[in-house]
Structures are given as C-alpha cells and as structure tokens.
Amino acid sequence: MLRFYRTPPVLPWLFPKVWWRRPVSGKTIFLTFDDGPIPEVTPFVLEQLAAFNAKATFFCVGENLERHPEIAQEVLAQGHVLANHTQQHVKAWNYTPAAYRDQVVLCQAVLEKIGPKPVGKKLFRPPHGQLTWRHLRMLAPEYQVVMWSTLTYDFDASLAPEKCLDKAISITGPGSVVVMHDSLKAERNLRFVLPRLLRHFSGLGYSFKTL
C-alpha cells in the first residue's frame, strides 16, 4: 500500500492559502486530532496531552459533538481548540460546493453552542483531505482550511504501531502539523503512538501548541 506520510510538495504549491505547516521560530509542533469527540478515545488523548503540558487542535464531527458535548467542553476546559470537520464526516467529492458548505455550517453551529465564537476565520479541515478549487472558493471567505504536513496513518489497521511511530517521528519537525485520530478505527495505533511521540519530542525540547 502506498502511503504519503509527508505532504507531496506540489499540494502546497497548488493550494497556497491552505495551511499545511506553520511558520515558527523555535521547536514547536502542532498536534491535531480528527473525527471525535468520543468517550472511548478522546479522554485518553486528553490525559496524554496533560501529562506533557501539550496543547492540540481537535477537528470535530458535528454529530459527535452533539452526542458528547461534555467531552467537547472538557477539551476546551483543558486549553485545547475545537474546530470544524463537517457535520457528518462527508467527502467533498460527493457534494456540490453549496451542499458541502451546508455540512460545514451545521457543524459550526454546533461548535458555537459549545464554545466561544472564533475571532477571525474559523478553522476547518475537510474529511479525507478531499477538496476542490470550487469548494475552497466557497469556504475561503469565512474558513481557514487546514491540512497537514505529517499524516500518521494511525487509522490503518494493517500498519504496525511501531512503524506508525517511527514514520511519524522521522518526518516531524519545527512547524509540522501532525494528524492523528481520536476514533475507534485508530485506537490501537493511537494508544501506542501518542504517548511515545509526546515523550520523544518533549525530550528534544519541543512544545506542542494549538493552531
């Protein structure tokens, strides 16, 4: 199976207004978690982050927010950021830009019932990384689209946890936007990789901040 752990250079060139990695002056990494919150996994993520005084950005599915608002509120209470991942985790290629935007707006409404309205553009990550120019133009006035520079593939059950960790460490550095998943599908690899990733980079003097 071909895996693109690191973002191919052509994509930031084609989509320069999308955030792929962030400019930093020191050892800073931006951890992000997609698809939650869920009670089986998100509390574990919060425990691990707290152990290393790490902050992260959670790109949440609106339906999960509605099911588990108390977990979302705990994410905020611990100093992390909630962001938009559509209402039902839909693929952009299956939706017209207008219908896709409806999914984004629904999720944003749920987010703003749980926490404060963002100042400036709202953070959004498209599920599966799927987006087109037409979708991007529709969202750009209100939303900052965030992709990634490191994809851990923690959701891939055929990938050994040790391999998942080794690849993530090898391509992550200052300014990296790292994607992991607080989901049942990713749980096995996440539980192995996250504490070790945090320990490794903390030992090298890195800090973990929100976007």
Rank of each mutant, 00 (worst) to 15 (best):
N94Y: 08
G79F: 03
T86Y: 00
V90M: 05
Q88F: 05
V81F: 01
W93V: 09
Y95W: 04
V81G: 00
Q88A: 07
W93D: 12
L111V: 03
Q103I: 06
Q88R: 14
L111C: 05
L65R: 04
L111P: 05
Y95M: 14
L82G: 03
N84H: 06
R67M: 10
V105H: 04
Q108H: 12
R101C: 07
Q108W: 02
C107Y: 02
L82M: 09
N84A: 01
L106F: 12
R67Q: 15
Q88L: 07
A109I: 00
Y100K: 14
T86E: 04
A83E: 01
P97C: 15
T86R: 07
L111H: 03
K91N: 15
H80F: 04
L111G: 06
L76T: 08
T96Y: 11
P97Q: 13
E70I: 08
A77M: 09
A109W: 00
V110T: 15
Y95V: 09
V105S: 09
C107Q: 03
G79V: 10
Y100S: 14
Q73I: 08
K91Y: 09
D102G: 06
C107R: 05
Q87C: 09
H80L: 10
H80E: 06
R67I: 10
G79Y: 01
A77G: 12
V81W: 03
V81I: 14
W93I: 11
K91D: 09
A83Y: 04
